[in-house]
Design a binder for these strands. Sequence first.
DNA 1: AATTCCGTCAACCGCATTACC
DNA 2: GGGTAATGCGGTTGACGGAAT
Length: 351
Amino acid sequence: MGRSPCCDKLGLKKGPWTPEEDQKLLAYIEEHGHGSWRALPIKAGLQRCGKSCRLRWTNYLRPDIKRGKFSLQEEQTIIQLHALLGNRWSAIATHLPKRTDNEIKNYWNTHLKKRLAKMGIDPVTHKPKNDSVLTSTDGGQSKNAANLSHMAQWESARLEAEARLVRQSKLISTFSNSFQAQKPEFATTSSTIHKPVGPARCLDVLKSWNGWGDATEAANASVSVVGIGGDLGSPTSTLSSSVCDGGTMKEDWKQQLQVPFSTEDLLDTSSFQSTWATESVTGNCSEHVPSGNFVEKFTDLLLSNSSAGRRSEDGGESDNGGGSDYYENNKNYWDNILNLVNSSPPDSPIF
DNA sequence: AATTCCGTCAACCGCATTACC
DNA sequence: GGGTAATGCGGTTGACGGAAT
């Protein structure tokens, strides 16, 4: 595998960019586009390697970059997406228009990570560091914590599968569009094929969790999960059919997405499969249903404390919340994620 | 005023992935 | 199918500026 020669070997300049260099790069790209990054420095008259030019452009010079302080909304978005996606900065960046992955990564490492740690939340797992907080009230909570983790893994794998489908559907779309131009009589069929792909309706499972205890919302979520497959009537059955039974689950997705894809597309992560296999997936599915109680605590810790921290920074009083606030924060957390997903850019690699 | 410490962030490094021959 | 080049990505580094001593 060939790697680009190091800048040192070519005697190219390293380190901070000067305004003159910025100007040269900017002027060249504005006139010609970047084209091949490797060839760009020579053409633009820069003593830099292509990689350095690309980084300078994508992280600093690009005109659609927003600089300055992150808003509370942006912070929440980053935390929520990090809980879901981990250190996949580029994926997170697609949901924060005008912010670069580098900027988000830096902000996470210098601000958010520390803030979560301060609140006693593990910034890697997004779980309270001291699980006894959870287990003290209910012996089964740690199991639920594990379940949540597994669900997150599962969702993550699903997102990756969907990302592949989006790419695949783009190809199909490109093909069918050109085909339609020649054969308009096939328009209906082909539009049916790629219609469901658009802004993917992800995290419906999470939505159904969120609606736990809220029959109406849960029922809506179940419709969403099952999609064209029908209404199962209860959130439990939604999860049971679409998550616990591998075969049924995949069929549901096939129906919902209406794009041909293989089992391997969905479950090609062996570790993920084994995770589920070892947790008696084939047995009582309700074991994998995270209790609303746990999710409440988890999300409350995550966001209430975060906003409390922000409030206290602003001089306000922190509100650790009683019952209704507790529930509201939990609801808001997942709602925010769902909003993010639903408003995702169509070219997002993840959603 | 000088020095040290610490937080921030632009830039680099090197591995992974994709594209191309 | 294999090798190479190009690009993407995430982790890490180091320069810089401000606060603390």
